[in-house]
């Protein structure tokens, strides 16, 4: 805490941050270019591309749809993932490794394969409910992230603390809320963020399951790139970057969890 940081370390961290952040600045700069096509460095200054994107009902529709999808998927992934992670880490169950392997398997297979397999399955089942299909498909790929991150925090839970609380008179629900929850909260939040972002950014699953009425942002972005490569693409990318940034800030403010703690 009070240890002095060597200037070398500071310099290295600075360089790493620069490498990470610099590519994110490029679309921001390209998005203000007053040209009909993308140039870097930008020529002139205009915000018209943002206006164009924000006024475009297709773009807005896709963005809102992706938000809705990611929020629902995250809620379901947490509802399924937290009890599952708790069960897998706190009890010895027969076939535990097999269960974990099964849950994580969607991350081992290329997502594009998972996506086409799901489409085939839904087709055989005769399902036409695209929205439900997308929710299931995204949950399949978000759940592993939630379970991995929540499991990691459950593994670190000190069981002695629960015993101590119970001995001091805390009934099980109080132990859960006042002792276990504070210990696993960072892991759950990290899982929620991963889940939200994985769903929000997903292309390969959505590509198979989406239809014209349920068209998430990454698919939209791809079609726009094919339409014309003008700075409105950079504007959309910038908006997505800013949105992710906003998400992180909101989480820090609302939940009082610093990113440093999430990373640790």
């Amino acid at each position: 805490m009070t240890a002095t940081v060597s200037p070398w370390l500071k310099a290295i961290v600075g360089v790493i941050l620069l490498i990470v952040v610099a590519p994110l600045v490029v679309p921001l700069l390209m998005s203000i270019s007053d040209t009909a096509y993308i140039v870097f460095p930008p020529r002139g200054f205009t915000l018209k591309w943002y206006g164009e994107v924000l006024a475009n009902p297709e773009a807005r529709g896709s963005f809102l749809f992706s938000l809705e999808l990611a929020a629902i998927v995250t809620a379901i992934s947490l509802a399924l993932g937290i009890p599952c992670a708790a069960g897998l880490t706190r009890y010895r169950l027969p076939g535990q490794d097999a269960i974990l392997g099964l849950i994580l398997s969607p991350l081992i297979v290329p997502l594009i394969v998972t996506g086409v397999a799901l489409l085939q399955l839904f087709s055989l089942l005769g399902s036409r409910a695209t929205f439900a299909q997308l929710i299931i498909g995204h949950t399949v790929i978000c759940l592993p992230y939630v379970i991995r991150s929540v499991s990691a925090s459950f593994v670190l839970v000190d069981r002695n603390l629960e015993d101590a609380a119970a001995i001091m008179g805390a009934p099980p629900h109080v132990v859960a809320t006042r002792v276990i929850w504070p210990q696993v909260r960072p892991g759950i939040l990290a899982g929620a963020i991963f889940s939200f972002i994985v769903s929000f950014d997903d292309y390969p699953i959505s590509m198979w399951l989406a239809d014209g009425d349920h068209f998430p942002v990454p698919l939209y972005l791809y079609t726009v790139i094919e339409r014309s490569f003008d700075p409105s693409i950079a504007a959309i990318s910038s908006l997505m970057i800013l949105f992710a940034l906003l998400l992180v800030l909101v989480i820090e403010k609302v939940f009082g969890i610093s990113l440093a703690r999430l990373a640790s």
Binding site: L119, Q120, D211, T223
Partner: peptide
């Protein structure tokens, strides 16, 4: 209801 895609994906969807 029109979904934008590309040839290979569209063939893949028909197959699936």
């Amino acid at each position: 209801v029109a979904e934008e895609g590309f040839t290979l994906a569209n063939v893949g969807k028909m197959r699936a």
